[in-house]
Amino acid sequence: MADPPHITIDGVPQNCNGCHQIFHSNSPAGATLNYHQEIRLQHGLNNRCVNCHDSQNRERLTLRDGATVSFAETPQLCAQCHGTVFRDWERGTHGKTLGSWITNSDAQRRLSCTECHNPHAPRYEPYKLLSGPNTLRMGEQVASPTGGVRDEQSPLQRWLRGIDPKQRDHPITNGARP
């Protein structure tokens, strides 16, 4: 995540403070948002903007002791509540590492918290799954529960149709539980 975040308004790049230093937020409780309406705050008990965002400088994040950190240092902020996860992340047992498995390699990059989790709604969204296996009858592609394709072009298929009609009624299971 870029630090600080940018948005583009009418073709002009803007920082957070571009607005927030002119228009001050009126309510610290922040129950209703007039702007940033795309933000869906579903972070459990953590339901106040200023729990994380610095109320004075919106380009910084605030820690519980009053110190501020940049957006690039998000893990320090998250660690205040998610101690065990942060510990795992530091060890590399939580989160995702890209580039290389070699620990001292320059190519290795560990994703930070907000690269996977939406900080406002950190729980993962339900995910669309890809098609299931269709490997049961080699060459004979029976439509699987997840919509496998019947391959009419396979030489085996052409041959089987000509030679052995019983083949197509081969009593294969689709693995589904009765």
Partner: peptide, 11 residues
């Protein structure tokens, strides 16, 4: 744990 049955083909 998958159950796939087997029957010999004609060939």
């Amino acid at each position: 744990g998958e159950i796939v049955e087997y029957l010999p083909t004609l060939n």
